[in-house]
Design a protein around this nucleic acid. Sequence first.
DNA 1: TCCATCGATGACATCGTTGTCAGTAAAGTG
DNA 2: CACTTTACTGACAACGATGTCATCGATGGA
Lengths: 333, 333
Amino acid sequence: MHTRPPTLSQVAARAGVSLKTASRALNGEPYVSGATGQRVREAADELGYRLNSLARDLRTGGTSPLVGLISGDLANPFYSAVASGVERELRRHGLLLVTANSDEDGQLERSLVEALLERRVRALLVVPGGDSREYQRVRDDHGVPFVFLDRPPAGLAADSVLIDNAGGTQQAAAHLLAGGHRRIALVADLVRTTSQQARIDGFTAAMAAAGNPDWEPYLRTGVHDAATAERTIGDLLALDDPPTALFTTNNRLTTGALRALRGLDRPPALVGFDDFELADVVGTTVIAHDMTELGRQAARLAHERIGGHTGPPRTVVIPTTLIARGSGERPPR
Amino acid sequence: MHTRPPTLSQVAARAGVSLKTASRALNGEPYVSGATGQRVREAADELGYRLNSLARDLRTGGTSPLVGLISGDLANPFYSAVASGVERELRRHGLLLVTANSDEDGQLERSLVEALLERRVRALLVVPGGDSREYQRVRDDHGVPFVFLDRPPAGLAADSVLIDNAGGTQQAAAHLLAGGHRRIALVADLVRTTSQQARIDGFTAAMAAAGNPDWEPYLRTGVHDAATAERTIGDLLALDDPPTALFTTNNRLTTGALRALRGLDRPPALVGFDDFELADVVGTTVIAHDMTELGRQAARLAHERIGGHTGPPRTVVIPTTLIARGSGERPPR
DNA sequence: TCCATCGATGACATCGTTGTCAGTAAAGTG
DNA sequence: CACTTTACTGACAACGATGTCATCGATGGA
């Protein structure tokens, strides 16, 4: 039941050789005679021996082949797509992924960073949730590379992969303006992440550049979940002068928007940031980008650092594309 | 750059105490004087000391606080929901989740099991992808508990959590039959997993019980992705005598169905196994079940085994509910 | 024949931590 | 005062593997 797994020295004893010889045999090192190797492998098989990588890793270099990913809940398709990309890339290099959910909470995130560093992960990928000034200190932590995803900590030069937020929001803004909209509502998430802030700023800038102040009464930020988005948009549409178009700054909010618009006679135009499954079926115009690729790139950067790459921090930007599927092309009423 | 992180003995040296005293101080063990404890903690802070859990785990018991989850690609919402539930439950117990993607490939899955056991995970949760006869041997592997999710290995009594496939398919079948359908197409995934097999069997049984053989020409199995599902359903609808209703046996296939049905004048009725985001928006009738709960229960079973629970294997069944949203209520044409 | 070389093997230290046990000085007990 | 108890501390072994070095017999060249 609670028997300890067999150790290498038990294997060695059974094969009638020394510990070191057994080690050599099982690791395919040279200088082991055919017969000895055979006997060791048989003994290992019979005992059901399995290497203890805790011991090996401790002895050799002191790190494990683990890479940590700290993100929000995997139930959010954004995070799971990222995790999928990360995992795929890591696997190519024989690395394992440890996922930890911070619930987008700074406190918890911090303790997860600690826990993973204690585990001697080879690298740490982080989608920062809250205020991330603390990374100033922890970065370059005794050679453990950090890569930030989607939301680089403000004011910190570090390897990071992010989405072309400015470009994406400009595409959205231009698209709606070109459709003749002026009263455009912007429904955004909590502004504490740099990515949300960038989207809001980009949109604001685009409106200013186009000389359209009419959107300003319709700015709603701090909307963090689909239900709130649904309610917020319901309220917007109930105004005397309702917006003729909506721009939601992430997939969760777009979901809420779709619920709010369902069954409406003459729904406003809608563009959502982030593509999502079934967007084609429901005909939603989105600012799409490859989230899996975002994860993959982050893993690639990490792997290069693990491999010893030095040099200044790099930033990879994932491009966005506007995919017109109908909802963004509805004219103002 | 590549400096090794500080060790406890460096901390001890700096604080002018022995290694063991430093260990005691940092672990909050009794028999450390206030002043000594203070000095040790200061020294640790100054050096930026962080425990090496590889070493600790090796010394104490030889296992790590890691639990492995082997499943298909996290990009599939089913797997990511499961992973989310697992992670949440593990976190409550201070355990970390290592996710590994088998791509539903038996070979890869096997090697991942090995890799994780080498890492001395405390338990292993598996959503078996292929033929899983091999688990017969590996189970109870020197006290590492295995829990199987969604698809228990055929003929193996082991802890497992699964969905009420028989009940769910019967609900679906009954619902469509009650709506007056006879020519009902069953679009199913690869039959090599026990869950798919159970859904097909359940549906077959329900049709037999209702004395309806009319569905038989419309059975399609081995449909593994959304694109194939879309094509397969397109073909079905192009038949001289097309089915008046469709039942798809998982979320991926339902997605394909929705694409195939998009824009159709008089679409057939549709019921899909697995709930999905936006199902309410697109009005799809589904057999719903709580995938996150499935993960949570699996983690719970594993945790109990870790805690020393012995006893016969247990099976937890996650119930299903039919949620009528319109698509399943369309009458036969 | 002698000595360097080479293949094969094992003894021992080591990675960074914790468990065991022994030692010491101060405090409590009779 | 002698003796036990108590608080604190450190030396040392151990976890399970790998790296370093020494050893040994067989071979080969001079």
